[in-house]
């Protein structure tokens, strides 16, 4: 039995026993290659679940749907290691109780799906340990270094050009499990702290606000980058922020549910190189 069939059958079992009220997984999309999130509530519907190399989205975002977990019942969700790290961060930030989340863990290597052992977020500590030891994505690092090689003025022009494409659709925010604020700072309008205008200044404001709020919280799932309808390379910004917190504080976001948020904690030996 392949992993897809195994998880389908387990999902059906969890639903019929009432252990979970909902399974959030992947299903067929509007084209042969596309996979889309599906929400399964009955054992019969588990037939719709698909698990293959196209299932790249981080579905943990949906766990924060208003009211979903407030009845104390459990929900099962298909997650890769990045999504499992998101669960740990959301638990650390008191946004969900990890005991209510049953995880169908998997990883994708060279287009092939591999099952990960465990059902609770804490079961996956070894997997996340391996990911941390492997370091940040070498591929992204290579891409980011190209930007490090040019002058600050050239880099500014690069980002100005990229941000000029932004239309403030907020797909990057909406798809992100870390952007759970019921009212984002850009939507606070009494007073309007951040311009809603999608001009150069407004686009810089939004993208910088987003970057800082994700520092030490982003798990590099790539959701924002894939969702951006105007192809802004958001991955490079996220990668840079992740590298900063890793280098400065040896901090790898989402290691476990007990991990303290990096920007909300202080240690005596924290580097303070930027304070004059």
């Amino acid at each position: 039995m392949g992993i897809q069939e195994q998880y389908r059958s387990e999902a059906a079992g969890l639903l019929s026993s009432g252990a979970v009220k909902l399974v959030i997984g992947f299903g067929e999309g509007s084209t042969v290659e596309r996979r889309r999130p599906v929400f399964v509530r009955t054992p019969a519907e588990t037939e719709r679940l698909v698990l293959d190399g196209g299932c790249v989205a981080n579905l943990s975002t949906y766990l924060l749907t208003e009211g979903l977990l407030s009845d104390g019942k459990s929900v099962a969700v298909f997650l890769k290691p990045d999504g499992i790290r998101s669960i740990n961060i959301l638990a650390a930030e008191a946004q969900l109780n990890p005991e209510q989340v049953v995880i169908f863990g998997f990883d994708i290597e060279e287009g092939q799906v591999r099952a990960l052992e465990g059902r609770k977020a804490s079961d996956f500590a070894p997997v996340i340990g391996v990911a941390k030891a492997a370091g940040l994505s070498a591929e992204l690092q290579k891409e980011a270094e190209l930007l490090d090689q040019i002058s600050a003025a050239e880099r500014f022009e690069y980002w100005k050009d990229q941000f000029s494409k932004c239309i403030k659709c907020y797909a990057c925010r909406q798809v992100c499990p870390m952007c759970y604020c019921r009212r984002c700072i850009v939507d606070v309008n009494q007073p309007q702290w951040v311009n809603t205008s999608s001009h150069t200044l407004g686009n810089f404001e939004w993208n910088i606000v987003r970057a800082f709020h994700l520092a030490g919280r982003c798990v590099a799932c790539g959701g924002c980058d894939r969702s951006c309808p105007v192809n802004i390379p958001l991955r490079l910004i996220n990668h840079r922020m992740a590298k900063e917190v890793l280098d400065a504080f040896d901090y790898y976001a989402g290691e476990c549910a007990e991990q303290k948020p990096v920007l909300a904690t202080f240690r005596q030996d924290d580097p303070e190189t930027f304070i004059l």
């Binding site: 889309r36 999130p37 599906v38 929400f39 975002t61 949906y62 239309i167 403030k168 659709c169 907020y170 797909a171 925010r173 909406q174 798809v175 809603t196 969702s227 309808p229």
Partner: peptide, 20 residues
């Protein structure tokens, strides 16, 4: 149910015309 509530579809639409 899976709509995440972004504005991508409206802002890329050749006919959507709402403004603030």
């Amino acid at each position: 149910v899976r709509c995440i509530g972004c504005g991508s579809c409206t802002f890329l639409c050749p006919t959507c015309h709402c403004f603030d």
